[in-house]
Design a protein around this nucleic acid. Structure first.
Length: 629
DNA sequence: CTAGGGTTAG
C-alpha cells in the first residue's frame, strides 16, 4: 500500500479505483510467489469488487492459489470467469486450469478442458500439465497413454514432460517403464538436465532399486543439493543408515551445504543406528544453520532422541513445539512405548486425542505396540476396536501383528490364532512371527510349529525365526526338533551370525559378542557380571514366588550373552543417575528383558535395551563412532 | 506480467 500523500489524503482511494488490471496482476503474482495463496484469492475478490476485470495474466496466479489450497469449488467458479472474459484459449490459462483441476483431484474436469480445446491440444505445456496430473493421482496407464498420444501427434517432449511423467513409477512393477523413460531421456538429450536426473534417481528408489539409483548418482557429472538429498533420503528409507552417514560425510567434503531435507535423512539414520553422539552433532548443526524452527527437523530430532533412549531430551523438544502434528505425537509415543513406559505412552495418546489431533494408522501402531510391551492388554484391545469404529481406519498387517503380540504376551494364544484367521487383509511374516514369539514365552510347541511353518513362507531366510523355534524345542527338551531345525538351516545355507550388542560411550561404540573377552576392560566387566548374578541368585532363594525364582534360575544359567556384557560395561563406566542404553539384536532375544528388570532393581538405574537388528556393520570389538562421519 | 516439474519426518 502506498502512503497517503500529505496534500491528497484521499489519493489512495482514488488510485485504487484507477488500478489497472496490470497492477492487480503484479500484486497477485507477488503474493503467489510468497505462497500467500489465501491472500492472493482475497486480492482477486477485491479486484472483482473494484470493477476491474481479470485477464489472461490474472488467472494463472488465481488457479495456482486454488490448486495449492485445494479449493476445487473456487477453482470451477474461476473457470466460469475465464469463459466470461473469453481468455479460455490462452495456453497459459488452460495449462494452469488443467493443473488446478489435477491438484484438486478432479481430474475428469481437467481432461474435459484438455479435450474441448483442439487448438491448445497440440501444445506441449497442456500435455505436460495433464500427464503430471495423472501421475499425481497415480493413474499409471492414463499417463502412459497420453504420453504415447503426445509423441504420435508429433508434439515435442521436453524436460518438464519427463518430470511430470517419471513419478508415475511408484513401485517395482513400474521399474521397466521407468528404465525405458531413462533411455528416452537420454535420447532426447535430457540426461544432462539436473532435474530430470534427480527425478530418475527418485524413481529408481521408489521402484525398489537403490543400486540403480546409486549407479545413476555416481554417473551424474554434476550433482546439486537435491541430487544428494534424493540419494540420502533414498538410503534412509531403506534403512541403509551406514550408507547415509558415509554419503553425508562425502557431501560435506564436496562442499555442498546441507539443507533441512538432508538433515532429516541423516537424523533418521542416526535414529536407526542409535548413534546418539552423531545425532547430537546434527542437532548442533541445525541450530547453527538457523533451521531450529523447521517442524520436519523437530520431529526427526524427537524420533532420534527417543530411539537413542534419551527420552528426556525427546520430551523437551516435543513440549517446546508450538505446532505439533500426528508425526510429533507418534514419535514421542513410540519412544515411550519402546522403552517400556507404556502408561506414559497411553496417557500421551489420549492427550493427543483430546487435543483434537486425528490419529492415523501409524499413530495406532505406536500405541498398540506400547500397550503390548507394557502388558496393557485390555487398553490395547480397546484401541484396536476404536481404530476402525471411531476413526474409520482399516487395520493393516502391522496392526494385527501388534495385537497378536498383545494377546500372545498375555497368554491368550488361542485368541491370537483366531484373530489371525479372521483377518480382513493377508497376514504377513510379522503377524505369524508375533505368534511364534508368544509361543516361546508360553512354551507352546504345537502352535509354534504351525506359526513357524507360516512365517518362513514369508521370510524363508530370516534366521531369527529358526533360532526362536530351536530355543522353543530346547526348552521343551525336544532334541529331535532341534535337529530338524538345524538340518533345515543347513539345507537353506543359513548361518547364524553371532548376535551382538553395543553401547555408545563417550562417542565410541563398544561392541560385544556372546562370551566376548576381547574388550580392554574384560576383567572388570566379568567381575561386575559375577557380582550381579550372585545377587540375583541369592534373591531367588528367598523369593516365594515360584515363577519368578524359576526365571532367575534361568537368567543366571543362561550363559554370558552379549547384552549382559554391554550392561556390565555401562555400569562400570557411567555414574549414578545416568541411563544406559544397550543396542541388541532383539529378533533372537532370549530373556534379556527379564535380566534387565532384575539388574535395574538391584542397581536402581534406568537400563534400556534397543533393537539393533540391522546393525551388522560394527565389526570386532571397539570401533570409533567417528568412522561413520 | 505467462503455464508444466525434482528432494523432507513416525
Amino acid at each position: 500500500m502506498t502512503r497517503p500523500h500529505p496534500l491528497f489524503p484521499y489519493a489512495n482511494k482514488w488510485l485504487d479505483l484507477q488500478n489497472t488490471t496490470a497492477s492487480w496482476n503484479a500484486r497477485l503474482r507477488e503474493l503467489a510467489r510468497q505462497h500467500h495463496f489465501q491472500e492472493a484469492l482475497n486480492l482477486y475478490c477485491q479486484m472483482l469488487a473494484s470493477g476491474d476485470s481479470p485477464n489472461a495474466f490474472t488467472f494463472p496466479f488465481a488457479f495456482k492459489s486454488c490448486a495449492s489450497l485445494s479449493l476445487p469449488l473456487a477453482g470451477s467458479q474461476l473457470h466460469g470467469h475465464v469463459i466470461k472474459t473469453g481468455c479460455e484459449p490462452e495456453p497459459f490459462v488452460q495449462t494452469s486450469l488443467i493443473s488446478m483441476y489435477c491438484k484438486c483431484s478432479t481430474i475428469a474436469c481437467a481432461r474435459k478442458v484438455f479435450d474441448e480445446n483442439p487448438h491448445s491440444r497440440n501444445l506441449a505445456v497442456c500435455y505436460n500439465a495433464l500427464i503430471a496430473g495423472y501421475s499425481l493421482n497415480s493413474r499409471f496407464s492414463d499417463a502412459v497413454l497420453l504420453f504415447r498420444q503426445m509423441r504420435k501427434e508429433g508434439v515435442s517432449v521436453n524436460a518438464v514432460t519427463m518430470l511430470g511423467l517419471i513419478p508415475v513409477c511408484t513401485g517395482p512393477i513400474h521399474l521397466g517403464f521407468g528404465t525405458s523413460l531413462h533411455a528416452c531421456g537420454v535420447r532426447f538429450g535430457l540426461d544432462g538436465d539436473l532435474s530430470v536426473g534427480n527425478c530418475l534417481l527418485t524413481m529408481y528408489v521408489r521402484c525398489g532399486s537403490v543400486d540403480f539409483a546409486r549407479k545413476l548418482f555416481d554417473g551424474m557429472p554434476e550433482k546439486g543439493l537435491i541430487t544428494w538429498n534424493a540419494m540420502i533420503s533414498g538410503y534412509a528409507q531403506y534403512g541403509l543408515a551406514g550408507h547415509v552417514l558415509s554419503l553425508y560425510r562425502k557431501m560435506e567434503f564436496t562442499g555442498i551445504v546441507p539443507d533441512p531435507v538432508t538433515l532429516v535423512g541423516v537424523l533418521s539414520s542416526c535414529a536407526h543406528l542409535g548413534a546418539h553422539a552423531a545425532g547430537r552433532e546434527v542437532e548442533q548443526r541445525i541450530e547453527l544453520s538457523g533451521f531450529g524452527f523447521n517442524p520436519f527437523l523437530k520431529n526427526a530430532l524427537i524420533n532420534m532422541y527417543a530411539r537413542c533412549g534419551n527420552l528426556v531430551k525427546a520430551r523437551a523438544i516435543f513440549d517446546g513445539m508450538l505446532e505439533k502434528n500426528v508425526i510429533s505425537w507418534t514419535a514421542i509415543i513410540a519412544g515411550y512405548g519402546m522403552h517400556g513406559q507404556g502408561e506414559l505412552a497411553v496417557q500421551l495418546f489420549d492427550e493427543m486425542i483430546s487435543s483434537g489431533e486425528l490419529p492415523d494408522g501409524a499413530a495406532f501402531v505406536s500405541v498398540l505396540s506400547a500397550c503390548s510391551h507394557a502388558g496393557l492388554t485390555e487398553k490395547g484391545l480397546y484401541y484396536f476396536t476404536a481404530m476402525e469404529r471411531d476413526y474409520g481406519l482399516q487395520p493393516g498387517p502391522e496392526h494385527y501383528s501388534c495385537v497378536v503380540d498383545l494377546l500372545g504376551r498375555a497368554g491368550r494364544l488361542e485368541e491370537a490364532r483366531k484373530l489371525i484367521g479372521s483377518m480382513s487383509v493377508e497376514p504377513d511374516g510379522a503377524v505369524w512371527g508375533a505368534l511364534l514369539g508368544a509361543c516361546k514365552i508360553h512354551r507352546n510347541v504345537e502352535l509354534a510349529e504351525l506359526a513357524f511353518e507360516k512365517v518362513i513362507e514369508f521370510e524363508p531366510t530370516n534366521i531369527g525365526y529358526y533360532v526362536l523355534l530351536s530355543n522353543i524345542y530346547s526348552e521343551a527338551g525336544n532334541m529331535e526338533g532341534i535337529l530338524r531345525v538345524r538340518v533345515m538351516m543347513r539345507e537353506r545355507k543359513l548361518k547364524k551370525e553371532p548376535g551382538c550388542s553395543y553401547v555408545e560411550y563417550q562417542g565410541r561404540i563398544h561392541l560385544f559378542l556372546a562370551g566376548d573377552r576381547t574388550h580392554p576392560q574384560a576383567q572388570e566387566i566379568y567381575r561386575m557380571l559375577d557380582g550381579l548374578e550372585d545377587i540375583i541368585k541369592r534373591r531367588g532363594g528367598s523369593n516365594d514366588n515360584d515363577q519368578e525364582s524359576r526365571n532367575e534360575e534361568l537368567i543366571t544359567g543362561m550363559g554370558v550373552h552379549s547384552e549382559k556384557l554391554a550392561i556390565a560395561f555401562g555400569l562400570i563406566n557411567t555414574g549414578p543417575g545416568t541411563e544406559i542404553t544397550v543396542m541388541k539384536n532383539l529378533r533372537v532375544c532370549g530373556d534379556c528383558h527379564l535380566f534387565l528388570k532384575l539388574v535395574s532393581e538391584i542397581v536402581d538405574r534406568q537400563l534400556v535395551v534397543r533393537d539393533a537388528t540391522r546393525f551388522h556393520h560394527f565389526k570386532n570389538g571397539v570401533c570409533s563412532c567417528k568412522d561413520y562421519w
